[in-house]
Design a protein around this nucleic acid. Structure first.
Length: 369
DNA sequence: AAAGTACGCAACCGCCCCCTT
DNA sequence: GAAGGGGGCGGTTGCGTACTT
């Protein structure tokens, strides 16, 4: 069928609107309403196409439009709705009084997208970018290992100590990132971060003791936090700036379901939805209401989707876990200001002195993905 | 101080859906 | 049911401004 553009007539103005044009449009609409947009410009004395008038009115001149910065609450609403709806800007705008779809779309593209990326969250799927991070780390690891090995050779006497240490730290950091990413996978494969996933995780027939479950989850988070904190202390700034964005951040929260029977329990920045009553059908119904769209339609858009680990992967994760359990990471703080950055993690990293251990581990882990 | 670059946002473009004829 | 028009929507562009070199 097709249609001719509404702005193909000669003499029609394009580009930024002048205050005089704005005034004409406002005056006309306040007096007569907009009626048919195509006929409006002529009646209002504007040399614009109807579409341009509609957009100018809808996005800028309408009296109830809210200008200015988006509040934290508004930002959270946009993120949550985008996780469920995708780029349905007009629907998202309908939940934010005074905000236009265009404004929200621009704000998403210029601010929120970057914010989520910095948090290690994919802005399209709203999943944590565990696998991508891991692949990035793995793709750089051989170079880092090679560089570190070179730095250790006495055949390069001109390399100063800071330079050697930087490369040595980079190697250690790569290893820690690997450990970190594997642990995140472990956390995501065993710890649901939303109410739906709680149900999915335990099945609809029985839900074990929530407190015990939360305790386990908290312990895992504590370990990860300690690991992150330890790896950040004293790290050379030129490397930190480059690599820090790869470290996921857990500040994002799901929106609290509108029900008094559901508690939100913050766990190290994550919020887990747990119900007080033990009726699984009610739980599921609440979850369905909260997410509003059946999961089979578009599962990938749900926030905090469950990432499951394969049995092989779990086995490797267990090895790492055993290692972590045999070392008290919470005490891993630098013993002095002159210590090497990753000395505190030495107990974990150095008892397997050879890089072949890590190579094997990486190979197995990649194969299990 | 000037040139180059990045960023933010208003406006435009083209496609699509829905309603009317 | 098909054709055509009106309006809405999401993606993209381009300009003005801020920031960096």
């Amino acid at each position: 069928m097709g249609r001719s553009p509404c702005c193909n007539e000669n003499g029609l103005k394009k580009g930024p609107w002048t205050p005089e044009e704005d005034q004409k449009l406002v005056d006309y609409i306040q007096k007569h309403g907009h009626g048919r947009w195509r006929t409006l410009p002529k009646l209002a004395g504007l040399k614009r196409c109807g579409k341009s008038c509609r957009l100018r009115w809808a996005n800028y001149l309408k009296p109830d439009i809210k200008r200015g910065k988006f509040s934290e609450e508004e930002q959270q609403i946009i993120i949550n709705l985008h996780a469920v709806l995708g780029n349905k800007w007009s629907v998202i705008a309908s939940h934010l009084p005074g905000r236009t779809d265009n404004e929200i779309k621009n704000f998403w593209n210029t601010h929120l997208k970057k914010k989520l990326l910095q948090m290690g969250i994919d802005p399209v799927t709203h999943r944590r970018r565990t696998h991508h991070d891991l692949i990035n780390v793995l793709s750089n690891l051989p170079q880092r290992l090679a560089a570190a090995n070179l730095a250790n050779l006495s055949t390069y006497p001109n390399w100063d100590n800071a330079f050697r240490r930087q490369y040595s730290d980079a190697t250690q950091f790569a290893k820690i990132q690997l450990l970190h990413n594997i642990l995140i996978q472990l956390r995501m494969s065993t710890a649901p971060t939303s109410y739906r996933e709680t149900i999915n995780h335990f099945g609809s027939s029985s839900i074990p003791d929530h407190h015990q479950y939360l305790n386990e989850f908290q312990q895992m988070n504590s370990k990860l936090e300690a690991l992150e904190n330890a790896s950040n202390i004293g790290f050379p700034p030129q490397i930190t700036a480059q690599m820090q964005p790869n470290l996921p951040n857990y500040e994002i929260h799901d929106q609290q379901p509108q029900s008094s029977s559901v508690n939100v329990q913050p766990v190290n920045g994550l919020e887990i939805y747990m119900s007080n009553n033990s009726d699984c059908d009610d739980h599921l119904q609440l979850a369905e209401e909260y997410y509003s769209i059946p999961p089979s339609n578009d599962m990938h858009r749900y926030p905090n989707s469950l990432v499951s680990a394969s049995p092989e992967c779990c086995s490797i994760i267990s090895q790492i876990e055993n290692k972590l359990n045999s070392n008290d990471i919470s005490n891993c703080l630098p013993s002095s200001s002159t210590s090497t950055t990753f000395e505190p993690l030495g107990d974990i990293m150095e008892d397997e002195a050879s890089d072949s251990y890590w190579k094997d581990l990486i190979d197995k882990y990649v194969a299990s993905l």
